[in-house]
Structure formats: C-alpha cells, structure tokens
C-alpha cells in the first residue's frame, strides 16, 4: 500500500518536472522561464524524493531523501533570485509583452 502511494508521488513529481521544462522551452524571456522552471522543477524533484522516502521508510536511504528535499527547498529560490537580479542588472531586456518595469524606474539614478 505505502509503496503504491510512494509511486504515485513519484509519477506526480515527474509530471510537474515535465511541465517545468516545457515552460523553460516555451516562455519568451529569462524571467518568465525562471519562474516556470524554478517552481515546477523544485516541486517535481521534491515529489520524487518524497516518494523515495515513503518507499524506503526511516532508514538511511529515506533520511538522505529528506535531506535532499530540505536542501532543494532552501537553495533553489535563492539561486533563482540571484540569477534574476544579475540578469536585470546586466541589462538583458524583458519580453515585448511586458507592461511595467518599476525596478528600472527606481534604479536609473544609480547607474
């Protein structure tokens, strides 16, 4: 029973991984790609690791999976944030659908 639930989590995770990567290919500029990819791939990989934990229980195998979940939830938003800030400061343009850019308005004096 618990193995089937774990396998369900793994399949859900792979589905969201796939959506995230599809977003990385389809969306128009860096920031949108970063959004789709970060959210979906983080959730998907966490789902796979949680399924692994459910299938293996409280052994060293399971604890490694739990540590991995904590790790990607801490690091992946930070990496996304750093990449977004660096690409905005280095002047990579936003997509042509963009409606408003408050960050540029406020930082024009500094450069």
């Amino acid at each position: 029973m618990i193995e089937n639930i774990g396998m369900g989590f793994i399949i859900l995770g792979i589905l969201f991984d796939f959506f995230g990567v599809l977003g990385l290919v389809r969306l128009p500029d860096v920031y949108n790609r970063l959004q789709a990819a970060t959210k979906c791939v983080t959730f998907g990989s966490a789902g796979i690791l949680f399924g692994t934990f459910l299938m293996k229980g409280f052994t060293s195998f399971g604890f490694k999976a739990l540590l991995g979940i904590a790790f990607i939830f801490l690091t992946s938003p930070v990496a996304a944030h750093v990449i977004a800030r660096a690409s905005h400061r280095s002047g990579i343009p936003l997509a042509k659908e963009t409606t408003i850019d408050r960050y540029k308005e406020d930082n024009e004096g500094e450069k």
């Binding site: 959506f19 599809l22 128009p28 408003i100 408050r102 960050y103």
Partner: peptide
Amino acid sequence: LVLHPNLPIKPGI
C-alpha cells in the same frame, strides 16, 4: 500557462 497554445501571459515588475 504552459499547455495553453497562446501563452496568456502579461508580465511586469
């Protein structure tokens, strides 16, 4: 968003 054929996005900061 990703599965929609027309990508209904309206990004901004």
